[in-house]
Design a protein around this nucleic acid. Structure first.
Length: 319
DNA sequence: CATACAACCCGCCAAA
DNA sequence: GTTTTGGCGGGTTGTA
């Protein structure tokens, strides 16, 4: 139990390291070094913690990133894509890809991706359906329990046309607690509740700080149970990671930002509209950095509806 | 926490 | 020319 928590930071560091160094060799020995475990012990701990083997994890991430790429730039060869994500040959790529997604990379490009994505979205909406009550309950619990957030009533202004601005966000050091599971579910509300208490105990709530929600995975490609979400608070360089929470750097750079106002149950729909309606018609494409929810220092919650305002930010580069 | 061993997978050559 | 499949040796991985 406490064992599990003391390992959380080290395992998460490895997981983040994998994503940040996909193109490089990621063998057991190298990653065990990152985690400060002996290779043998590390293998066991990692598997117990994540449910998948280290090599499986590395391969899965490489394939997911690769699968995302040809959608944006169909011109680059599959070999090049394979090399960019750290798979050493076209043959290995084809085989691994087919084993994971059920189709060859070229078939994926010619439309198979669509059906995969639709299946993912169906799956997720079923999860949301089943989770509706729990989500409501979590929100109520959150509102009753927490005096940490300022209250403010929002007038009934529903989101109509989303206005999007391109912003350059600074690199930001944050402390975070991670949840792995379907996006938009009640667990994430509970994560924030937990995280707010954790922050408050360390004086990170009283003078308000920038806070962030990070979505590391694309819910269209990654299985719902494997999607990572981090609740984050900005911290000074002197702040060190503690058991339950790690420290990471949010990449700066260009983001497309849309304002969202509403209860947590609606944020997933807003993300979908942003990605499906705005992004394809824009002059930008998403890059490999993670999507962010940005909660400004004037953050507040409507005590009746649970509505709040935040910015949804997609990392972008020009087409 | 270590060793030892079998299975698996990557990387390479060839070819459809 | 690019992508996929098959076969194969050898290194890595997973587990007893």
């Amino acid at each position: 139990m406490t064992d599990r928590r003391s390992h959380t930071t080290r395992i998460n560091r490895v997981i983040d390291h994998i994503d940040a160094h996909l193109a490089e060799p990621l063998g057991l020995n190298a990653l065990a070094t990152v985690a400060h475990f002996s290779p043998w012990h590390f293998h066991r701990v990692f598997q117990a913690f994540t449910g998948e083997t280290l090599a499986d994890r590395v391969r899965r991430r490489r394939l997911e990133v690769a699968a995302n790429r040809p959608l944006a730039s169909p011109r680059t060869s599959t070999l090049r894509i394979a090399l960019e994500v750290g798979i050493g040959s076209a043959e290995a790529f084809t085989r691994a890809f087919k084993a994971h997604f059920g189709v060859t990379p070229s078939a994926w490009r010619r439309g198979a991706a669509r059906t995969w994505i639709e299946r993912q979205r169906e799956q997720l909406s079923k999860i949301h359906q089943a989770d509706r009550k729990a989500n409501q309950a979590a929100m109520n619990g959150f509102l009753e329990d927490s005096e940490l957030w300022p209250r403010r009533r929002f007038q009934g202004k529903r989101g109509t046309a989303m206005d999007v601005t391109i912003r350059t966000l600074p690199e930001t050091r944050v402390a975070y607690m991670r949840h792995v599971g379907p996006y938009g579910s009640s667990s994430i509300t509970r994560l924030w509740q937990l995280f707010a208490a954790w922050c408050d105990a360390r004086g990170l709530m009283k003078p308000r700080r920038m806070m962030f929600g990070i979505s590391h995975d694309s819910p269209d490609l990654t299985a719902p149970e494997q999607c990572r979400y981090d609740a984050c608070v900005q911290v000074d360089p002197s702040f060190v990671a503690e058991d339950e929470a790690g420290v990471q750097i949010i990449s700066g750079g260009r983001y497309a930002c849309a304002s969202f106002t509403g209860p947590p149950s609606e944020i997933n729909g807003a993300w979908m509209r942003f990605y499906c309606e705005w992004l394809p018609d824009s002059r930008y494409q998403a890059d490999d950095r993670s999507s962010l929810e940005v909660y400004d220092t004037d953050f507040s919650i409507d005590p009746d509806t649970g509505a709040f305002t935040c910015a949804l930010c997609i990392p972008i580069r020009p087409l």
